[in-house]
Design a protein around this nucleic acid. Sequence first.
DNA 1: AACCAACCATACCGTACAGTCGGTATGCAA
DNA 2: TTGCATACCGACTGTACGGTATGGTTGGTT
Lengths: 213, 213
Amino acid sequence: MPRPTKRNPERGDARTRLLEAARDAIREKGFAATSVDELCLVAGVTKGSFFHHFKSKEALGVAAAQHWAETTAAFFAAAPYHAAEEPLERVLAYVAFRKSIITGELAEVTCLVGTMVQEVFATSPAIRDACGESIFGHAATLEADIGAAMQDRGISGDWTAESLARHTQTVIQGAFVLAKAGNDPALARESLDHLDRYIRLLFGCSNQEKRSR
Amino acid sequence: MPRPTKRNPERGDARTRLLEAARDAIREKGFAATSVDELCLVAGVTKGSFFHHFKSKEALGVAAAQHWAETTAAFFAAAPYHAAEEPLERVLAYVAFRKSIITGELAEVTCLVGTMVQEVFATSPAIRDACGESIFGHAATLEADIGAAMQDRGISGDWTAESLARHTQTVIQGAFVLAKAGNDPALARESLDHLDRYIRLLFGCSNQEKRSR
DNA sequence: AACCAACCATACCGTACAGTCGGTATGCAA
DNA sequence: TTGCATACCGACTGTACGGTATGGTTGGTT
């Protein structure tokens, strides 16, 4: 074990390491079952340091949700699905991308804020709101492409781009729940196929228009 | 407070009262944050009684999931959505029914096993499997109608009745997550509208075929 | 050199936790 | 009546929890 905590830290400062430890632990077993002591141990930090950076465990939860929002925003902004020419292509590429990253251990696949908000929505408004901002903020990044696709294809149903953007997140969050319940990530991918099919139907794509694989 | 626990109990035996207390508490704040002491207090029962009926807190979790599966199965079996003549009508009526019961407090609307499995899927296989049985068992009750509707309408896409049945549960579970994140049950109803639309599109319903309201 | 604030460490506190244990009360059957 | 199983009670245990108090260390500023 390398000297854990000193100035000029070898792998991020204490705060960041705590946030990363929290991210992993909470995804694995939830917020309530994650103890401060354990986070300190994993992050190689002492209690004093923890409560220097976060005034309470709840504050850590809020910070973890915000950190999640920031890191995932950067991750998706850099993802390749924005490359396509047509806006609808980009939307479908997003769904395909979400599907493609569902591999490996379930805990490493699922959404931190979706997991956390299920437990704390009634007991911690602060964490709940931070989780909400993460989810709806991400949904908002899809709105432009969906709206452009609607205009592009002359679609005007009794639904909005905002609503469909949120629905994609519904399917993704629900997909994680079923994957956990069945202990099989394939269950999540299956629902993303339905989401892909729904979007194509909404936009009047014929079936054979679907790309290979 | 009526004499809580005696033989010839006035409102169910201790075990049932504990299961109901667990159902409410876990939906409100999750499994880990729910203490045995609190459940005993709410159920009007002592610790000794609790551990007489459940050998551990985890065993209570399993029993709570099973109890949930039984009570919800009875609830949906008695629901009016089975009445319609055509199988597709019944499927759509199911979705409409699920939407119609999303009213009031969020904690009273959401799914016990969906909430629980998010926290414990990695730490308690027993609870996870019990939650899985509840969810997938419920999904299975939709398969017959979906299958009949497919045959009825001569549908054969690259999806199965089983898969679509599961997808309905994905949307419902995800809908609860977004409703919690946004602290607004309307968000859940919104996604059920998308699910309704998806099913209609799959089965080639025209839009005006949609019933009023 | 002196100082400061951010940062980190250690020891500790009160409490709430899951689980245990010895015991009592009740119903039933031989 | 005895014997036994089920149901229930409540005090107790050890521990792990979130949080605090206090003091030391470090890098930058003046």
